[in-house]
């Protein structure tokens, strides 16, 4: 398993797609900073008091991290990264050189996902440092805030992104193509699924009457994208369990598919 992860990280470091995605994401991170600078500091004096009241955005570190990652922008970048990385081996036929080496084909899927998570982690850490660093240096209104809150938000965001990566990885393994992986991943990233889920909630309430229970409470993307970072311990634990269940199911499903399917 160690060798498999090492091999995957090597190929990730050499892949053109990794470099392009990293550059695009760093650019978007700096773009986010630019928008924050204009909205929060208003350096060109272009906003009226009414605009400022409407656009008022928190410049506390924990809120900045949340706004950077819990967004369509990062989810799209993440989905493209995971899908391309997960499918690259199969797309060029390199898997035929490797899969037969071990009888435990599922290890290849697990190692690929772990490597994708490592790549995502590096991307998140680097972009967080760049974002917080530029904000601390150039955003007048920047506040570090509570370190405990920052750590909590970072933990929740990271947990959510690990789960998203597992879901994107599963779709890619299931459809064995970049397009097959990207379509459902983008449906999730762009919030289209979220809207469908809200419609389901509405229909559910129409059919069963108003209840405390709504289906989207158990749907990961809906729960995570609407999560209140100030929520209490129980809500965080519930989200953690949901993340764990979705991650185990999707990664386990990917491993099972890899083990049972022939390499074509």
């Amino acid at each position: 398993m160690y060798n498999l992860i090492k091999m995957n990280l090597y190929r990730m470091s050499k892949a053109v797609s990794t470099k392009v995605i990293a550059i695009v994401w760093i650019f978007l991170t700096l773009f986010n900073f630019g928008v924050m600078k204009i909205v929060v500091d208003d350096p060109f004096n272009i906003m009226s008091e009414a605009d400022k009241a409407t656009l008022a955005t928190s410049s506390v570190a924990s809120d900045l991290i949340q706004s950077l990652f819990v967004s369509s922008n990062f989810l799209i970048i993440l989905s493209v990264f995971v899908v391309l990385f997960a499918n690259a081996e199969h797309k060029c036929g390199f898997d035929k050189n490797l899969i037969g080496i071990t009888n435990h084909k599922w290890k290849h899927a697990l190692a690929r996902w772990i490597s994708a998570v490592i790549g995502m982690t590096v991307l998140m850490v680097v972009s967080s440092l760049i974002y917080l660093g530029t904000c601390a240096l150039f955003l007048n209104a920047f506040e570090l805030g509570s370190l405990a809150t920052l750590a909590k938000v970072c933990g929740i965001v990271y947990m959510g992104m690990v789960t998203f990566s597992a879901i994107f990885f599963f779709f890619t393994t299931l459809f064995k193509s970049s397009a097959g992986g990207l379509v459902p991943s983008l449906i999730i990233s762009l919030g289209i699924l979220f809207m469908i889920e809200k419609l389901l909630d509405f229909l559910f309430n129409k059919v069963f009457g108003s209840t405390d229970y709504v289906p989207s409470d158990f749907l990961f993307d809906s729960k995570f994208l609407n999560f209140d970072m100030d929520a209490g311990r129980n809500a965080i634990i519930f989200l953690g369990v949901l993340c764990l269940v979705y991650t185990v199911l999707t990664v386990g499903g990917s491993m099972l598919l890899q083990q049972r399917r022939d390499v074509k």
């Binding site: 050499k14 036929g93 071990t102």
Partner: peptide, 29 residues
């Protein structure tokens, strides 16, 4: 299994990598 070399349906290679990098990937595993 590592005593068996396999070339099935043409060489499966990463086109954007060099020969050395392709070889390195398999040697790492």
């Amino acid at each position: 299994r590592d005593r068996i070399g396999v070339l099935i349906e043409g060489p499966g290679l990463y086109p954007n990598m060099t020969a050395y990098e392709n070889m390195k990937i398999k040697s790492l595993i």
